[in-house]
Amino acid sequence: MQTRTRRLLTVLAAPAAALLLWTAAVPLGGVDLTVDQAGTPLTVGPALVAAAALIAGLAAWGLLAVLERFTARAALVWSIVAAAVLAFSLTGPLAAATTAAMLVLMGMHVLTGTIVITGLVRR
């Protein structure tokens, strides 16, 4: 499989996996995914989940492409940056209204990050 095709499938798999987790947790599990967004409650729905995962995947792919043009160690540099971004992103779910919501949101972050990190740099 060509690199571009594999990377496109990776970027598309990330939101698909996040949506599967959202489906298992919210409609099937009854978890209320509400977070405090600057004092306003925000319900995390499927569109937000898909958009966030897709944007993160596209941004990651774009950064990797830029690094591949300018450095010989692009995969290593990108992997370190991606892991740091994933770790930082885990602070967002701390604003969840409930512990269950926080755990589900963290799970979505880790799932999306794992798919993107392993899928984009794999040879």
Rank of each mutant, 00 (worst) to 15 (best):
Q2L: 03
W61R: 13
A65P: 06
L48N: 08
I80V: 15
P41Y: 02
I80S: 09
L76M: 10
W78S: 03
G30Q: 06
A47E: 00
S89P: 10
L76E: 06
R69M: 06
R7K: 00
R122L: 13
A75R: 09
S79K: 12
I115P: 00
A53I: 08
G113M: 12
A52C: 02
L120F: 10
L19A: 13
L8Q: 00
V116E: 05
T98F: 07
D36K: 01
P27G: 05
A25E: 04
V81A: 09
T112S: 04
A87N: 08
M1I: 09
T43W: 02
L103S: 02
V110A: 14
G113S: 07
Q2I: 03
L54E: 08
A59V: 15
V110F: 12
M1D: 03
G107P: 03
A38E: 14
G62I: 09
L12Q: 10
L12T: 10
G113A: 10
T23E: 12
A60C: 09
G113R: 13
F88N: 05
A82S: 14
G30H: 07
A47N: 00
L63I: 13
M1H: 00
T71W: 08
D32H: 15
T43M: 05
A56Y: 01
A16K: 03
H109S: 05
A51H: 06
L111N: 03
M106P: 01
T112N: 01
L28D: 06
